[in-house]
Simulated assay, not measured.
Amino acid sequence: MKTAALIEAGDLIFIRVKARPFLEVSAATGCWSNHVGIVVDTSGAEPIVAESTFPFSRYTTLQRFVRRSEAGRFAVCRLAGGGLESQHEAIRRAAQRRMGVFYDTGFNLRSSRQFCSRFVREVLAEALGVEIGCVQTFDELYARQPQAGLTFWKLWFFGRIPWARETVTPASLLESSMLRVVGEGRLTVGC
């Protein structure tokens, strides 16, 4: 992966996971991306990404992370101000404190569990004092995407969608004016 040489600790990696719940997140947000992780180490042979995923938060290599994306699509984003070199250790420590936390399938910002966009948002808030993304209720999300179907979510939440629940989505992070895209592409097998 040629882009790996350009990646820095603190970069966000956006992908599109093919599992049904994640595809429904894409539909509900109107965004191609439905999963995000944060690079915490670039000192080895390959960058390491910290992520909240099912069943719990963990580290994975960049290639393994991107390989899970539909058609290998990914985007690398960096805080617009840059200059995070002195903050790499703080980012790594903030991510480490969140390792092993169970995944929140209810996407509840106030839960004791984690989900991908909340994980990344909290790592950056703790390490850098920066809050990216937009906190929204489920009701606000669907007001923006009224054409998105609700059948899946009615089943997912056993008939009662928690409309007032606050969440933060990968789309709101990707769309943040605090980030700039520094690389996009597709992972090709064998490269």
Results as ranks from 00 to 15, higher is better:
residue 105 T to L: 15
residue 105 T to R: 12
residue 106 G to K: 13
residue 107 F to N: 04
residue 107 F to V: 08
residue 108 N to T: 12
residue 109 L to A: 13
residue 109 L to R: 11
residue 111 S to A: 12
residue 111 S to H: 09
residue 111 S to D: 13
residue 112 S to G: 11
residue 112 S to T: 15
residue 113 R to G: 14
residue 113 R to N: 14
residue 113 R to Q: 15
residue 115 F to L: 10
residue 116 C to I: 05
residue 116 C to L: 09
residue 116 C to Q: 05
residue 116 C to G: 09
residue 117 S to Y: 03
residue 117 S to F: 03
residue 117 S to A: 13
residue 119 F to S: 04
residue 119 F to W: 05
residue 119 F to G: 02
residue 119 F to M: 07
residue 119 F to L: 07
residue 119 F to A: 05
residue 120 V to E: 04
residue 120 V to M: 07
residue 120 V to H: 02
residue 121 R to N: 09
residue 121 R to A: 06
residue 121 R to D: 03
residue 121 R to E: 07
residue 121 R to Y: 03
residue 122 E to K: 11
residue 122 E to V: 04
residue 122 E to G: 09
residue 123 V to G: 04
residue 123 V to L: 08
residue 123 V to I: 12
residue 123 V to M: 06
residue 124 L to N: 02
residue 124 L to G: 00
residue 124 L to P: 01
residue 126 E to V: 06
residue 127 A to Q: 01
residue 127 A to M: 07
residue 128 L to M: 07
residue 129 G to Y: 06
residue 129 G to P: 00
residue 129 G to D: 04
residue 129 G to E: 06
residue 131 E to Y: 08
residue 131 E to F: 06
residue 132 I to A: 03
residue 132 I to L: 10
residue 132 I to Y: 04
residue 134 C to T: 14
residue 134 C to F: 03
residue 134 C to S: 11
residue 135 V to G: 00
residue 135 V to W: 04
residue 135 V to M: 10
